[in-house]
């Protein structure tokens, strides 16, 4: 009997469904290959050999339908805002948005007739990464913050399981 007990102790983990789901979600954040302006180049740098975002489970995908994270990397203009919104709408839930760079956060230096003053005006932004452009390290930090946020979120909120847990 003791042998069976030990086997169970060594191979079975007790955890909550929520932390398991959050752990898996935060470990495979797939962003969209979607560069707009200068920040896109730093995003590429972050994805390439030296900074290597892949080791955080961050793998770029070419289509919004395969991705979880949208990095708004650059200036969003009025002409482009509907496109960004449509891409966001095409992403399956759960989905997150990183506003990379000053332009995406607030319009930056471009306070003009053509530029949207912050991506927050038309998509919900989870993490802001400041800089013009942010260094690849800053983008990594943004991803780590996003992982932190996901780990603390309530994945089961609103589902039947949530009601069971609450009763």
């Amino acid at each position: 009997m003791g042998g069976v007990n030990n086997a169970i102790r060594d191979s079975v983990l007790f955890t909550t469904a929520e932390s398991l789901i959050n752990w898996s979600r935060s470990s495979a954040l797939w962003p969209e290959t979607f560069g707009i302006a200068c920040c896109a180049i730093e995003m590429i740098s972050a994805g390439c050999a030296r900074y290597d975002l892949d080791r955080f489970g961050v793998v770029f995908r070419p289509s919004p339908r395969q991705s979880d994270v949208m990095i708004i990397a650059g200036t969003v203009t009025r002409k482009f805002a509907p496109v960004v919104r449509r891409l966001y709408d095409q992403m399956p839930e759960p989905r997150w948005v990183i506003a990379m760079g000053t332009c995406a956060i607030s319009g930056g230096v471009y306070n003009t007739y053509a530029v949207v003053q912050g991506a927050e005006t038309f998509v919900p932004v989870d993490v802001h990464v400041p800089g013009c452009p942010p260094r690849p390290e800053a983008l990594m930090h943004g991803f780590l913050l996003l992982q932190e946020k996901i780990k603390r979120s309530r994945a089961l909120a609103g589902t039947p399981l949530d009601r069971v847990a609450a009763s």
Binding site: A37, I41, T77, K79, Y110, T112, Y113
Partner: peptide
């Protein structure tokens, strides 16, 4: 025009030294 940011018009309201950062962002490579 999806990235038209109005650099030329913005430059008209900047001093000459202030325009340098705007020129950076033209060909950002």
């Amino acid at each position: 025009g999806y990235l038209h940011r109005g650099t030329e018009k913005l430059a008209e309201s900047f001093t000459y030294t202030q325009i340098f950062p705007l020129t950076d962002r033209l060909d950002y490579l």
